Simulated scan of single mutants.
Amino acid sequence: MTPLPLPLPRVPPPLQRPATDAPPCHRAAEERRAMLGLGTYGTAREAARAYDAAAWRLGRPRGQMNFQDVYTLQQALDVAPPPRLNTAQDRVEHAERQRRLLVAQEDERVMAEWRRRHPKDVAYEQVYWARRREEDM
Rank of each mutant, 00 (worst) to 15 (best):
V11C: 10
L101A: 12
R62I: 08
G39Q: 00
Q89G: 05
V11L: 08
R109V: 02
R131P: 03
R45S: 08
R115E: 11
H26I: 07
V110R: 14
A28M: 13
R10M: 05
P18Y: 06
E30C: 15
E93D: 14
Q68D: 15
A80N: 03
M65R: 11
Y41E: 04
V127M: 10
A29V: 03
D107Q: 15
G37D: 07
T72Y: 08
P83V: 03
E31Y: 03
D136S: 08
M65H: 15
W114A: 11
A80L: 02
P119W: 03
R91Q: 12
D90I: 04
R17D: 13
P5C: 05
M111G: 06
E93P: 02
P82E: 04
Y41P: 03
E135V: 14
V79Y: 12
Q75L: 12
E134T: 14
E31H: 04
R109P: 02
L77T: 00
Q89M: 07
P23Y: 05
G42W: 10
H118F: 15
E46W: 01
G59R: 00
A88G: 10
V103A: 02
R100D: 01
P81S: 02
E30I: 10
L4D: 07
R57V: 03
A88M: 07
D21P: 03
Q64P: 07
W129V: 12
P3M: 12
R49P: 05
T43H: 06
E134K: 14
A88C: 06
E135L: 08
R62N: 06
Q89V: 08
E106I: 00
